[in-house]
Design a binder for these strands. Structure first.
Lengths: 145, 145
DNA sequence: GACAATATGAGAATGGTTCCCGTATCCAGA
DNA sequence: TCTGGATACGGGAACCATTCTCATATTGTC
């Protein structure tokens, strides 16, 4: 189960784009919040078996638009979803290039700020408006190595 | 046109996995090497209009398996391809979250080594065998902002 | 409680990518 | 240079994660 604050933020963000915070959408937020790592649609179905596939896809898209959920791509063919970082904490992904599994990890604050600074100046140089960075480590998970 | 060394390396890597370095594959390497940024299959077709789509897909997969080409995913639905980093140089991507375009950039060496060190220790902690990192900046390109 | 608007969900459609298979090309040995 | 066997090519069919459709159910409002 998810903290009330998370649900409150989700409800507010949905409302701000003219969407309701329905039972199915709450179930998705609970599923993602209860997971250690980003989930595929199939994994969401395993956790919340009552949700039909089409609703999962549609509502994940709505939640993504409301900035409640972030979609990430791995090395396999399945999209994965996690709660937005400001609802959890800033983190990164270990991506297995063999099986596509994704595991979260964090880096020391000094590293983060150095990276951010470097990215901001690179973006400025190229006329790009940076929103967030995405620092993943690609390799082999303990199962596949 | 691509340096001989690049073609030599490509030929050797293909040979090492029992594949030939054919005309079509050479054309793909030329196309990717001549591009400023990673290319979609459609963009490859624009550059090398003689190559049929099915051959582009098949040969990019072969070149990827031979570690001559790397496949990257953006925010849109198209896969993009670039030469492996040891045939070009280590770099990162600015990814436009609106149109999906991808632009290369590089970071100062100190930042790279700090990041690498931090990633290595994080990977060790989680039983992961790191291969390479992937540091992208997601935002809006000058066209979309 | 009734109405209008929005969300749901089962199945169809979409489209980037992969696969199939008959043909063309390449390489080794003679 | 020929020949045989293996590999690559390429047009089109198949695949499958995802998106779309639309009739029904649910929601919020007066």
């Amino acid at each position: 189960m998810t903290d009330a604050p998370t649900h409150d933020v989700a409800a507010k963000r949905l409302r701000s784009i003219g969407q309701r915070y329905t039972r199915g959408r709450r179930a998705l937020v609970d599923a993602l919040d209860g997971a250690e790592n980003p989930l595929t649609v199939e994994q969401v179905r395993e956790v919340e078996s009552s949700l039909p596939q089409s609703s999962i896809y549609r509502n994940l898209a709505v939640l993504e638009e409301a900035a409640v959920v972030r979609r990430i791509t791995s090395s396999d063919e399945f999209a994965r979803f996690e709660l937005a970082e400001d609802l959890t904490e800033h983190h990164h992904h270990l991506i297995c290039s063999d099986c596509g599994s994704v595991v979260d990890f964090t880096l020391p604050g000094e590293v983060e700020s150095l990276v951010d600074g470097a990215l901001i100046s690179a973006a400025r140089r190229l006329g790009f408006t940076g929103d967030h960075h995405r620092l993943d480590l690609v390799g082999l998970c303990s199962n596949c190595s």
